[in-house]
């Protein structure tokens, strides 16, 4: 066990000088794009979640004719209804008044013109049919289905997510290619040492190990640099975003990826580096005699 650990320590120490700063920068910049894209998308998604990304129907009630509780019971019984929220007219006016720039307008109204309402959350496929059916219920003054808005937003979110995965795939492949080539060059420059090591009894594992560590560490270092770039960029962007968001009465900021996401990202970058090294070592070590 001690010997095994010593050999890994030896391989690790031999791998450290093999990490090339320029490659780390290339990998870091390449990985910063999907990492940054992910951070932006997650930030926007969090806000969109608050703005009702899910398909919703606003059911405005006829104040004179409606039994609010009875209508609520009918809606709750409908299996197409995922969630139901009742917004009394007073609360609706209060919420409207809290929106930046609307306070004075609401104060000038004198009386509350807003009706009581139910906000019904449903699935996208049930949106239109549910809206039609709810509109027929006595006491419902108006039904507003946010289908188009929901569909567009969902489609845009899917598009952005797909684009991000494609970008991540391409740049992940670039990371593998960069590591593959770096390790290939290292194998070429250390050809004599590898040949001698094979002749005096080094196992394949012993010869491969420093290259695996080099690929892994290069990937990890590139991933860490990518996170630093993303963090720095978001901090710069947030200076402007803060001002813009405050003008809309919002506290929106672009958020740095959460800790588990950052760790997963680093692990993935390290694994891709290791994979590039593995492919390169498997291909190029065979070319060195003796086998």
């Amino acid at each position: 066990m001690k010997a095994w650990l010593r050999q890994h320590r030896h391989a690790f120490a031999r791998a450290l000088p093999r990490i090339e700063l320029l490659n780390v920068v290339v990998i870091g910049v390449a990985l910063a794009l999907p990492a940054g894209g992910y951070a932006l998308l997650e930030s926007v998604r969090a806000v969109a979640g608050r703005l009702a990304v899910e398909p919703q129907i606003s059911v405005f009630l006829d104040a004179k004719r409606t039994n609010v509780d009875a209508l609520g019971t009918i809606l709750k019984r409908d299996p197409r209804v995922v969630r139901l929220r009742y917004i009394p007219r007073d609360q609706a006016l209060k919420e409207l008044g809290a929106v930046q720039g609307m306070g004075e307008l609401v104060a000038a109204l004198g009386r509350n013109p807003l009706p009581d309402a139910y906000v019904v959350t449903t699935s996208e496929e049930n949106l239109e049919s549910l809206a039609k059916d709810v509109a027929k219920i006595p006491g419902v003054a108006q039904v507003q289905a946010d289908a188009l808005w929901a569909r567009r937003l969902a489609t845009l979110a899917r598009l952005a997510r797909t684009a991000l995965w494609l970008l991540a795939g391409v740049l992940g492949a670039a990371l593998i290619a960069v590591t593959f080539n770096t390790i290939r060059l290292q194998i070429l420059t250390q050809r004599d040492e590898i040949e001698v090591s094979k002749l005096i009894g080094a196992t394949d594992g012993f010869i491969r190990r420093p290259f695996y560590y080099a690929g892994l560490l290069q990937g990890l270092a590139g991933g860490a640099l990518a996170l630093v770039i993303v963090g720095g960029s978001l901090a710069l962007l947030n200076r402007e975003v803060r001002l813009l968001a405050e003008s809309y009465g919002s506290d929106f900021r672009f958020a740095f990826p959460r800790e588990p996401d950052s760790v997963a990202f680093l692990v993935l970058a390290g694994l891709l580096g290791w994979l590039g090294a593995h492919l390169s070592v498997s291909r190029h070590l065979k070319e060195i005699e003796p086998r």
Partner: peptide, 11 residues
Amino acid sequence: MLPLAFSTHST
């Protein structure tokens, strides 16, 4: 030292 790198001997 090279052949001793993959032996079981202590440093």
